[in-house]
Simulated assay, not measured.
Amino acid sequence: MSDVPRHVSVEWLHEHLADPTVRVLDGTVHLSPGDDGPRIEPGRASYEQEHVPGAVFVDQVSALSDPEGEAPFAAVGPDRFAAVVGELGVGDEHRVVVYDSVNGIWATRLWWQFGLEGFDRVSVLDGGLDAWRVAGFETTSGTETYPPTTFTARRRPDRIRSTQDVEAAVDDPDVLLVNALDRGLFAQGHIPGSVNVPFDELVGPDGRMRPIEELRELLASVGALDPGKRPVTYCGGGIAATAVALTLMDLGRDDVAVYDGSMNAWTADPGRPLER
């Protein structure tokens, strides 16, 4: 395992922006209400308006989501991921910092996809672009690039679960399903046997991660730190689930998987059970 921390502060990034081995990626995606469900829009326009100096934009909607997957946002395969991030200028030798300008879960999604492909030299910017601004650090506009390079993907199949896997896990006492949606949505319907750790309770009012001991208490309270159970996190579309997966890894779990299709895939078949 890498000794690179899973979070870095805005102060750390500010000090290391000139480091030629550091690559900064803005993975912002905007979700807004629409007549036919949520409207999903890559954050390229907001990136071009304002971003951390030196950051490049990665389109997680079109470039890193598999349109033939079992649900929207399905992770692309290793070859596609390697091609996309290599073209963005991320190579095996680089140290990557990811962030977004919304609620942090798009940064953790990008962090998770790097880890899924065997790359651990990646950190989430704690607090994202908001924390960068609050610290008084300057932002820039326009588009930036790094020279393309080669990235090697080494898929870790133990970090991802399919609907078929989760159907089997419902009756497996050794697996704990962890729902990352807010408590109201959890109450409306969840996969049987799930516990609830809302992603927005992992951060404080400033958007930065809560103290590690507070997070330990929260995760322990639902049994997610029980060494006899393997955690599988999920949410609506596999995005917020990655924030809980990251927190569990921060607390020492190296056996966390994400149900990539999450509720979008689970509810596609009305015959699958839901608890309310």
Rank of each mutant, 00 (worst) to 15 (best):
G104L: 07
V96W: 03
L125D: 00
I105W: 13
V97W: 01
L116V: 06
H94A: 03
D92H: 04
D120G: 14
A107C: 09
D92S: 04
F114D: 01
V97D: 00
D100P: 05
T108L: 03
G91Y: 03
S101Y: 11
E117Q: 15
Y99S: 07
R95K: 15
V124T: 13
F114H: 08
D100W: 06
D92V: 00
R121M: 08
H94I: 00
R109F: 04
W111P: 01
F119Y: 15
H94R: 08
F119P: 04
V96P: 03
G115M: 09
L125W: 03
W111M: 05
T108C: 05
L125N: 05
V97C: 07
I105M: 14
H94V: 01
T108V: 00
G115I: 06
G115R: 12
H94M: 03
Q113L: 15
R121T: 02
N103W: 10
E117P: 10
L110F: 10
W112T: 01
V96Y: 02
G104M: 08
Y99G: 06
E117D: 13
V102K: 15
F119S: 10
V102N: 15
W111G: 02
N103K: 12
R121W: 05
V96L: 08
T108P: 00
A107T: 01
G115H: 09
R109K: 09
G91R: 07
H94Y: 02
R95I: 00
S101N: 14
V122K: 08
G118P: 09
Q113A: 12
L116R: 08
W112D: 01
W106G: 10
W106C: 11
D120S: 13
V124P: 14
G118A: 10
L110W: 05
V124G: 14
R121S: 12
R95Q: 03
V97S: 05
V96T: 02
S123K: 08
N103R: 12
R109M: 06
I105R: 14
Y99L: 06
G91H: 06
I105N: 13
V96M: 07
T108A: 07
R121V: 00
